[in-house]
């Protein structure tokens, strides 16, 4: 299951990352080397084995549904790269 340069482009799009031509080639090489190693897992007999989805075996940890003040709007905006009034500000979302 070798990763092609086209696959690298596709994964990058999904991951919202972009790479230069040389970076892509290095990534392709690295990913293939790592995946080749990972493919040793195919030696394991996993027939009938349940996937482990919850490491600490607790279920449905509930808390009271209560309103409380955690962060103020001002605090929540403290680290914003761009803001306007009570809002986070971003570049335009739609082209006109």
């Amino acid at each position: 299951m070798a990763v092609s340069l086209k696959d690298v482009d596709k994964i990058a799009t999904l991951a919202k990352l972009k790479f230069s031509g040389t970076e892509k080639e290095k990534l392709q090489k690295d990913l293939n080397k790592i995946l080749e190693y990972i493919d040793h897992l195919n030696e394991l007999d996993l027939e009938g084995v349940e996937p482990l989805e919850n490491i600490n075996e607790t279920e449905n940890v509930l808390r009271k549904d209560e309103v409380y003040t955690w962060l103020t709007t001002e605090e929540a905006l403290k680290n914003a790269p761009s803001k306007t009034g009570k809002f986070f500000k971003v570049p335009k979302v739609l082209d006109k």
């Binding site: 299951m1 990763v3 696959d7 690298v8 596709k10 994964i11 990058a12 999904l14 991951a15 990352l17 990534l27 690295d30 990913l31 790592i34 995946l35 990972i38 897992l41 394991l44 996993l46 084995v49 349940e50 996937p51 482990l52 989805e53």
Partner: peptide
């Protein structure tokens, strides 16, 4: 690199071959 690898093993067509297999191996 790790985001790319993670995105790959979770992507359509590879989820069962990698991610699901990893969870079973973890068991």
């Amino acid at each position: 690199r790790r985001i790319m690898l993670g995105t790959y093993v979770l992507s359509a067509g590879y989820y069962d071959a990698y991610y699901r297999k990893g969870q079973k191996a973890r068991t």
